[in-house]
Computed example of a mutant assay.
Amino acid sequence: MKTILVTGGAGFIGSALIRYLITETANTVVNIDKLTYAGHLENLQEIDHSPRYHFDETDICDTDVMKNVFQKYKPDAVMHLAAESHVDRSIDGSAEFIRTNIVGTHNLLEIAKEYFEGLTEQKKEQFRFLHVSTDEVYGELGEDGFFKETTPYDPRSPYSASKASSDHLVRAWYHTYDFPVLITNCSNNYGPYQFPEKLIPVVILKALQGEDIPVYGTGENVRDWLYVDDHARALCKVLQEGVVGETYNIGGHNEKKNIEVVKTICAILGELQPKNDGRYEEQISFVTDRPGHDFRYAIDASKIKNELSWKPKETFESGIKKTIQWYLDNIDWCETVTSNNYDLERLGTT
């Protein structure tokens, strides 16, 4: 049993990770989150009664408070997911991405290193700092090929540039200070509890409301889709069995054009909740493409499969159906998390 400090644990991926850690392991979990627009404690209601779960509303950029967190809980590992993560928001305003993703990661590394240096030798052997990143740091692919752990970085948006920066910081702390880090780079996540500004929940909610379903450009951009619970399992595998200093790419083996994803959602909604008039697909509307929109991402996840025996359980077909059904069953959650948002035009508002 370990005490694991998870930053950004009220967000989409962080909350899935914490739900997995509490329900599937015997570990104690400390959730650190400053509860921005995309962080919601409603994501954790099913486990927040557990005596092994603790929550601190804290900003990772706050040095004094974070030092107190480490001294109070004495973690055996850090799983760092706190980040600003929406590309569109980074294009409109990059400052918060620089602050959280770069300055925040630096602050956390400094505090964790100081804490690590005070541990006993036995505790040092066990301690790990897992930094969770994205495949967007690699840039874009052409019609073929895959991102590998050795692919050179070529970030093309303020978001991906900030994540690339934080990846480099984490590696520098490993090489300079012998600090025990691990890094993961994942493909596009989807699943329950995703804040309704990302593609899949936007499509679901816009479709249900009879509104235009916005698709960038011609919808030909390709992404690899990873079900969020598969990602949570992978992160725990890397934390437990990964080699210190190594990077592991995590992908779902589900490459899809954006327009394919949208049409699949429309078709499944037609089965689960048919429209009274026409088809959901008739609501698709192509809009001006996003600046610097990368054409294709695809991950080679053979390293984590071969070395750590992880592979995704969900196909895109099984995962997307579960996801759509979850949103149909949890419209109240969507209303709750979007009720006080200042930027509703981004959302599939309910």
Rank of each mutant, 00 (worst) to 15 (best):
Y297D: 05
A298P: 01
T315Q: 04
I299E: 05
D300H: 05
T288N: 12
D289E: 15
D294K: 08
L308N: 05
T288H: 10
S285I: 01
A298W: 10
D289L: 06
A301K: 00
S309C: 03
N306T: 12
I304Q: 01
S318M: 05
E307D: 15
R296F: 06
F286A: 07
N306A: 12
K303D: 00
G292C: 09
I299W: 04
D300V: 09
D289N: 12
I299F: 03
I299N: 06
E314Y: 15
Y297R: 10
I299L: 12
S309F: 05
F286R: 07
A298T: 03
K311H: 05
T288S: 13
T315D: 04
S302F: 00
I304V: 14
Y297N: 10
R296N: 09
F295Y: 15
S318I: 09
I299T: 14
K311N: 04
S285N: 13
A298E: 13
K303H: 08
T315N: 04
V287M: 09
K303N: 02
T288C: 02
F316K: 09
H293W: 14
E307C: 01
F316M: 08
Y297F: 11
F316A: 10
S302E: 11
E317T: 12
R290M: 15
L308K: 02
P291A: 10
D289V: 13
W310R: 00
S309I: 00
A301H: 05
F316Y: 15
Y297K: 10
S285A: 11
S318N: 13
F316P: 07
K313N: 08
K313T: 11
Y297M: 05
P312R: 03
S302Y: 00
A301Q: 05
L308S: 06
D289R: 12
S285H: 11
S318R: 11
H293L: 15
P291H: 09
F316D: 06
A301W: 00
F295V: 06
T288D: 14
R296L: 08
D294M: 13
A298C: 14
E314L: 03
D289G: 07
W310E: 04
S309N: 15
F286H: 14
D300P: 09
Y297Q: 11
S302H: 07
I304C: 03
P312V: 00
F286L: 13
P291S: 08
E317L: 03
S302A: 10
D294T: 13
P312K: 02
D300Q: 06
I299P: 05
S309E: 08
I299M: 10
H293A: 12
P291V: 09
F295H: 14
D294G: 11
R290F: 11
D300F: 09
K303Y: 04
P312Y: 01
A298L: 13
S285R: 11
A301F: 02
E307F: 01
Y297G: 05
K311R: 08
K311I: 02
T315K: 03
D300S: 10
T315M: 03
F286S: 08
D289I: 13
I304E: 01
V287C: 08
S309Q: 11
V287G: 07
P291M: 09
S309A: 14
P291E: 08
K305S: 07
D294L: 06
T288Q: 14
P291Q: 09
S302P: 03
K313G: 01
S302C: 02
I304L: 04
E307L: 10
F316G: 09
T315C: 03
E307R: 07
R290W: 07
L308D: 05
K305F: 01
N306M: 04
E314V: 00
I304A: 02
E314M: 10
R290E: 12
